[in-house]
Design a protein around this nucleic acid. Structure first.
Length: 152
DNA sequence: GCCAACGTTGGC
DNA sequence: GCCAACGTTGGC
């Protein structure tokens, strides 16, 4: 089992939005970065767990836990000309972009803020704390996962 | 293949 | 709104 951190701007899609979905599940789609695409297609498996991270907002931080309930499959938003993430180069025969389905496990009682995450030496190497990191999904070590869980 | 220009991300 | 960092694009 692997651990991940998945970013979303709450003004676009928040953990409360996920909580309101039927079965509290949603496709994590719209990713248009090749490194993250590779993880979505090849590495992120059913049963993996992920933190839901709110970015570009008043209080950036980790807001809860999700699990992967469907592994990588072609991102349908790439095929839809009406969709903001439409990509005519991605075809059904040869899809460029992939997504996974997630399910909410639980929302934290409080946000574990970015500011707080920066304080712990065990977390210094988290991708999200590295200068210039922009990937919307990043892997976490088991240690990082446990340390963060203990902060709640 | 190089690289300047441009767009996006995301913290502050 | 600013700006650093990084990815993408396209002319050559």
């Amino acid at each position: 089992m692997h651990y991940w951190l998945m970013k979303s701007e709450p003004s676009v899609f928040s953990i409360d939005d996920l909580a309101k979905r039927p079965q509290q599940t949603e496709a994590w789609d719209g990713v248009r970065n090749y490194q993250v695409r590779n993880w979505l297609r090849d590495e992120i498996k059913v049963g993996d767990q992920a933190f839901f991270y709110h970015s570009s907002c008043e209080i950036p931080g980790i807001t809860g836990i999700m699990k992967i309930i469907k592994a990588g499959y072609p991102d349908p938003t790439a095929f839809n000309p009406e969709n903001h993430h439409y990509d005519p180069k991605s075809t059904l025969q040869k899809p460029t972009w992939y997504c996974v389905d997630v399910k909410l496990i639980r929302k934290f009682k409080r946000i574990i803020t970015l500011q707080e995450l920066k304080q712990y030496p065990d977390l210094f190497h988290m991708p999200i704390l590295q200068k210039g990191n922009r990937l919307s999904i990043t892997p976490l070590t088991a240690i990082e996962w446990q340390v963060i869980l203990a902060l709640e």
